[in-house]
């Protein structure tokens, strides 16, 4: 059970559905034309699910993730997270929402080049009241030997692990990953996925992980697979028999 100290998440929650997208639209102005990145998206995600959102380029995957992560605002529709309509949040509320509830993992890691591995993770102390111990997490992700290194002294996989460590140090309700294995070789990608799965299973299985990718293989290990096409949900299926990561032929 996640009890958030943030005012918007004060109440104790015990429900199946964690996230709800109700007819969400996101329109961009491209020159003089309008482009619907998301065109009436409806779906729900349950608490503790390992979700993969699949789709080709331009399907609206990243837009969806940005809206869910509170980095962008909807044009219309509603996004509900734990009974809170985050699509109605103002900038301050969204900042608090991101700080307390969301962990981001980017394709190109986005770790701060002038901070050491340890510092990149412990930075969350400045935004979260009760962060996890940075050293413990770095040990969990296998970076205990690299704690005092700077990012450019690490391999891509190691950098992504720093990014994961930073995300989970906040102990977030939601872990949002945008092509987390996109810039990695398959072996490293598998390691990263294992870490994400491990995070999902931790906390009595109440952590929710949403991965946006165009790699269909990842869908095989997911609890739920949402397929997007042209800004619309093509399918939203629960995977009755998710595979173990090691069973997938990458």
């Amino acid at each position: 059970m996640n009890v958030r100290k943030n005012s918007y998440f004060m109440k104790e929650v015990n429900m199946e559905e964690l996230i709800k997208f109700k007819n969400v639209k996101k329109t961009y102005n491209v020159g003089e034309k309008k482009f619907n990145a998301l065109d009436g998206v409806d779906f729900s995600i349950g608490k503790g699910e390992f979700v993969v959102i699949l789709g080709p380029s331009g399907a609206g995957k990243s837009t969806l993730l940005n809206l869910l992560g509170g980095m962008d605002k909807v044009t219309s529709g509603e996004i509900v997270v734990e009974e809170n309509v985050i699509s109605d949040f103002n900038d301050t509320q969204l900042t608090d929402y991101r700080a307390e509830n969301v962990g981001f993992i980017f394709q190109f890691y986005n770790i701060l080049p002038t901070l050491t591995v340890y510092e990149n993770v412990s930075i969350v102390k400045d935004i979260v009241k009760k962060p996890k111990n940075a050293k413990t997490i770095l040990k969990e992700v296998g970076l205990e030997k690299h704690m005092n290194k700077f990012p450019n002294q690490l391999s891509g996989g190691e950098q992504q692990r720093v990014s994961i460590a930073r995300a989970i140090a906040k102990d977030p309700l939601l872990l949002l990953c945008d092509e987390p294995t996109g810039a990695l070789d398959s072996k490293t990608g598998v390691e990263v996925l294992k870490l994400l799965k491990k995070q999902c299973d931790a906390n009595n299985g109440e952590n929710t992980v949403v991965i946006v990718t165009h790699n269909a293989l990842i869908a095989e290990v997911a609890d739920r697979v949402i397929r997007l096409k042209n800004g619309k949900v093509e399918s939203n299926e629960k995977n009755k028999h998710p595979k173990n990561i090691d069973e997938v032929k990458w």
Partner: peptide, 8 residues
């Protein structure tokens, strides 16, 4: 990046 992380 740090704004996304939740820095005000």
């Amino acid at each position: 990046t740090i704004k996304v992380l939740g820095f005000k």
